[in-house]
Structures are given as C-alpha cells and as structure tokens.
C-alpha cells in the first residue's frame, strides 16, 4: 500500500496503485460513515482550511464533513466575498493563510492551474477541489469508488461520459482515471461541446446517444452549465434534451444492468429525465454523494500521513 503524493492536485500525477490504495481506504471510511459512531481522531490536532473561490455547496460540505469526522479543526472560507475584492492576489491570500500554519488546504478556483500555482507557494498539503476546466480529482475518485462498489471491479468496463465534455473538469479527471485503470471510455455529446484534440486522447467519440450507449456498463451524465447557452454552443435546451438528455428510451441501449451517474447538481429535464435520476435500480447518484465524504476522508488521511513523514519541512 503506497501513496507518495504531497498534494492531491489532479488524477494525472497518480499511479494506478495509488488510486487503489486511496479507494481501499475510502471503502473502510464508507463503513465507518454508516455506523452510529462516525468519529475518528486521526486528524486530531491538524487544521484544515477550505478556500472556495467559486460557489459550491456540496463539495464544500463534503470536505468539511470529511475533515470533521476525522477530528481536524476545519474552517471554511468563501473567498469570493473576501480579500480578492480588495485587490489581494491569489498568492498573497495563500501566503497569509500559510502563515497561520494550516496542515491541509482545500482549494477550488475558477482558473485552470490556479491550485497548482498556490501549491507551489505554501508548505501544507493542498487538495484540489476543482480548478477551472482542468481537474476535479476527488470527484473522479468518488465516481471510481461508486463504480467499483456497484460493478465489483474498476477495470475492463465500458464507461460512457455524456454531455459538455469541453468545459468539464469532472470529465477530464474521470477520463484520466478510467484510462489509468484500463477501462474503455466513450465520450458522447454535440461536437461543439467536445474539447479540441479529442482524437488524440485514446477515447471513442460519438455524437449520437443510441450508438454511444450501446452495451455500456456505466452511463455518466454531466451537468450542462447554463452559462454555456449564452455562448451559442447548443441551439436550445429542448433540442439538447431531445438529442442528448438521458431518458428511458436512450438508456435502453446500454446494458440492462448499467448504472447511471451524475456529479450534481442536476438539471432535471435538460440532461437527465427525473424518473431515471430517481430510479433506485439504475441511479447511483445518492451513493456518489455518500462516497464523496468517504473518498475525501481517505484523501485527507493519506496526505496527513505524508505530512508527518516530513516533519521538518512542514514545521519550518
């Protein structure tokens, strides 16, 4: 069992065995989370700061709960409203917080690469809670754990990722993770929502749901961000739902035991039909939320262990 990372900035730097290590630990935390006594003191005495430069409810709550269940002192800051408005730069904000000696820093930022930049300037462990269109590693890890629990394995599965791939950090992280674990990845969506150079990613690209979903084990829907509508990426919501929204008819092309996933928050009737989302036999959306807390506990735990292994540098 090895996990050699100082930060969790993305899926890209992780090795397959590190992913397995993290998921195995998260599985144990999932069991803890279902028991009456949910608390562990493993992060006792450590300070965790959540800095969200972009609105978030579920990810922030999930990280906060994860830290608290492990006994850390957790502080959450909505950065939109604070010093950035006064003209302070991202790096100055980071250095200010760094001077308060946090051990774990959870950061979400609207610019790709901003969390990497910040990680270079602080001496605590940094967890990326989503940066621009780049990566959202804990989301991919919780998706992986959900798939592994539902399917009994995390390899040789056919996973269809559907919707706005171009603007989605969730899609990028999932793509990288599923590749590392040797799955077959299909991307389905209108060509305007596919990133450039997609042909070089080693994935199958479909613009038609019926073809793309054929014999899929996992159907992963992405949220259609409303702001994309203004950019003219798609003609209208109703045409999008008609062609790319997941309903029973389209789901019938996938395997009969295919699971349906969504990172939330959902736009019912835009990318997913409400009855599919609520179908407890197909939808694992609630399980994804549950695994989110477990995966984040595992990530915090592993990074904290690596902190202790390097005491001088950290305490300097």
């Amino acid at each position: 069992m090895r996990f050699d990372q100082r930060h969790l900035l993305g899926i890209e730097p992780l090795r397959p065995d590190e992913i397995t290590t993290l998921l195995d630990l998260a599985d144990r935390y999932a069991t803890l989370n279902r028991s009456r006594q949910k608390r562990s003191g493993i992060l006792s005495g450590l300070t965790q700061i959540n800095m969200f430069f972009e609105n978030s409810t579920r990810t922030q709550a999930s990280f906060e709960l994860a830290g608290k269940r492990l006994g850390a002192d957790v502080m959450s800051m909505a950065m939109e409203a604070s010093s950035l408005k006064k003209g302070e730069t991202l790096i100055d904000t980071a250095l200010t917080l760094n001077a308060m000696h946090p051990d774990l820093l959870v950061v979400r930022h609207p610019n790709s690469g901003a969390v990497d930049l910040l990680a270079q300037k602080v001496n605590c462990a940094v967890l990326n809670a989503g940066d621009g269109r780049h990566e959202h590693p804990t989301q991919a890890l919780l998706d992986a754990l959900t798939i592994r629990r539902a399917k009994g394995r995390l390899h040789r599965l056919t996973v269809a990722i559907c919707g706005d791939i171009a603007h989605s950090r969730v899609a990028r992280s999932n793509l990288l993770l599923l590749h590392k674990m040797e799955n077959r990845v299909r991307l389905i969506g209108p060509p305007t929502l596919m990133p450039a150079g997609i042909g070089e990613f080693g994935v199958e690209v479909y613009h038609d749901m019926a073809e793309g979903l054929r014999d899929a084990d996992v159907v992963m829907m992405l949220r259609l961000q409303k702001e994309r509508m203004d950019g003219g990426f798609i003609p209208s919501e109703r045409e999008y739902f008609h062609r790319y929204g997941l309903d029973a008819e389209k789901l019938a092309f996938a395997k009969s035991d295919a699971i349906v996933m969504h990172p939330g928050p959902m736009n019912r009737g835009v990318e997913i039909d409400g009855t599919i989302a609520d179908d407890i036999n197909r939808s694992v959306i609630q399980e994804q939320v549950e695994m989110g807390v477990a995966v984040r506990m595992a990530a915090l735990d592993l990074l904290a262990r690596n902190l202790r292994a390097r005491p001088n540098e950290v305490m300097a």
Binding site: G113, H134, A166, R172, I198
Partner: peptide, 8 residues
C-alpha cells in the same frame, strides 16, 4: 490535446 488536458 495539450490545451484540452490543461483546461486552458
């Protein structure tokens, strides 16, 4: 590919 991977 590079810009897409970096999300730029």
């Amino acid at each position: 590919k590079f810009a897409s991977l970096r999300g730029l």
